[in-house]
Amino acid sequence: MEKQLDNIWIGQKDLTRDEEFMKSTNQEFAEEQVTYADMTSNLSGNRRDFLKFLGFGLGAATVAAGCDIPVKRAIPYVIKPDQIVPGVANYYASTFVNGGDYCPVLVKTREGRPIKIEGNDLSTITGGGTSARAQASVLSLYDTNRFTGRRLKMAQDGKIHLGQK
């Protein structure tokens, strides 16, 4: 029964070399939970039970949640603009101007949002050519610093003119 190494003991029973306790320490994976008299616990289950429940709970929740298909919404226009067909891109002729650069462009839009800028083939000046800046300028259309509407300016004659700088 000499189990205490270097006089190291855990708990009162180990110190007093309680016979029953010493017997139980021989079984490493004891069926009955080894209880320490001076350790009180409010939990009814032990760590293994907890892990079992945790694992089962997580697994069950994953399976239950994974089988549920989220509700998808289809939201049509209230008043659909005539020229827009959902799923078909519209092309608008426009002009790219940046400093001294100029380029006639075609803007591809889906449901009113520009997604691609290409050169306008019909232009006799550029014949559909673009530059990297013109191609990339589609991003600037989503710049939050852009004006969201027309500017108002009081002209010399004291009247307000819309759409003029």
């Binding site: 289809a74 049509p76 008043i79």
Partner: peptide
Amino acid sequence: DSARRSKHSSIPSTNT
């Protein structure tokens, strides 16, 4: 109406 001319056969807008 978009079924014949688009990839979507969209749900009609309220004005329809």
